[in-house]
Design a protein around this nucleic acid. Sequence first.
RNA 1: GGUCCCGUCGUCCAGAGGCCCAGGACGCCGGCCUUUCAAGCCGGAAACGCCGGUUCGAAUCCGGUCGGGACUGCCA
Length: 475
Amino acid sequence: MTVRVRIAPSPTGHLHVGTARAALFNWLYARHNDGVFIVRIDDTDRERSTAEFEADILESLRWLGLDWDEGVEVGGPHGTYRQSGRYDRYREVAGQLVAGGAAYYDDRSPEELGELRAQAQGEGRHPGHYIRRPETDAEVGAIRLSIPQDSPVTFDDLVRGTVVFEPRDLDDFVILRSDGTPTYHLASTVDDVDYEITHVARGEDLLPSTPKHILLARAMGATEVSYAHLPLLFGTDGRKLSKRFAAASLSVYRDEGYLSDAVFNYLSLLGWSLDAETTIFSRAEAIAAFDLRDVSSNPAIFDPEKLAWMNGEYIRALSPERFVEMVTPYVEAAVGRVLGPEEWQRFGSVAHLVQERTRLLPEAGEQVVFLFEDFDQYDESSWEKVMAREGVAGIITEARLRLEAVDNWKAEMIEPVLRGMLEEMGIGTGKGLQPLRVAVTGFSVSPPLFESMAALGKAKTLERLERALRRLAPS
RNA sequence: GGUCCCGUCGUCCAGAGGCCCAGGACGCCGGCCUUUCAAGCCGGAAACGCCGGUUCGAAUCCGGUCGGGACUGCCA
């Protein structure tokens, strides 16, 4: 039997990292089993759904590398894969269930229902305990599914094992509202049945809804699907990863220059592992090893620090050409303008050094601004730390003098000149080079000094040494 | 309140009765390298929530307990 899985985001916001992780696991499962991955849009909430969010969600999925075989935009044998176009079908199913006796109309008022719930709760029972089929059979109001009371609902969850729900703890839930629109339970279950979904892997928050979906599918005469309830993701504060958590949307990572491969790798590690040792692995390796049964059952905290580290690993693994290509927009953003060919050449000479010390792409830009713009001011803490020492002016003065005499302006030529100088002056390289670094780059932290000077050019380097001198000893 | 889920280093994951006085990764601490910062290398601190039971033997099985979470809508 062909494995058919789906992800069904609601276009009421950006793609949440939790949804992205669920999509990723579904995708891995489909790919591992040569199955079909489907993207369906659950847009029954007409008020809050927008085309912009839908486009953003699809773009995020593609960015993550999760291509789908059937679904919205790519099509398939089941129409639009958008719930908003299937209301007739949902109504049809609801009608059939009523006709077959599995569901019934209920026109009781919210107040009436509220009282029944309060009564049940007061007795320590399930809130919906007394919400059962009323005596009348008038065909008005909402439609509820009638929960069969004869036997417990049991299913084998791929990640949690056997889960049992007693029917007395289940209430007759609404499947079609009195305005004729379907509830989530109906729409989702009908789609899963119609699209012949074989495995439903979704967040653990839907575990309590699963018996409802099973009963609904059963009432429709459908074969049961397998379920896998994935552990929830939490923020570093230990609370649910909500929109309040700054980076809860996948688009944030895309926009801030994280690498798709790194985010994929990191997300796949939340609740799953390739083996006991491997942390960095490719999509292909993940596909080869993935199984929903291996997914951990306990919730995970999303750690931005580890993601950043992993992103750095992937950046370092990039080819030099690819690194320059990816970093281009960030460098130009940091400099504040578009760079010319000569400037890119300049950047190219230090790119490999920058690549080594970059975890997040925007950092790369910050490291090289000094190459293109005369900074307005020095980083004050760097200046204080380095320039306050005795003899600094002497070092810079001497360096300026000696560098002026260098004709072939290359790192290999600059290095012996400065090293020789420090040796003669009896100053250690650590102490001696820092003032030059601050003078030239404005910071006590920068790419290696000799290469930086070489890339900056002789004239600019000398100019900055003079400028630092002027600040040290204003005349 | 009720139902269900979860409980191994600060965090993510490995562990499916002896290989575990618990392993890998991030982070943290120390060292090496070094031109700063990174990277790299070496080393370190750091966990089986608790109590019982089963067993020759338990992180692994069972019960209880405590703690956390989800759900409890004519939201999804």
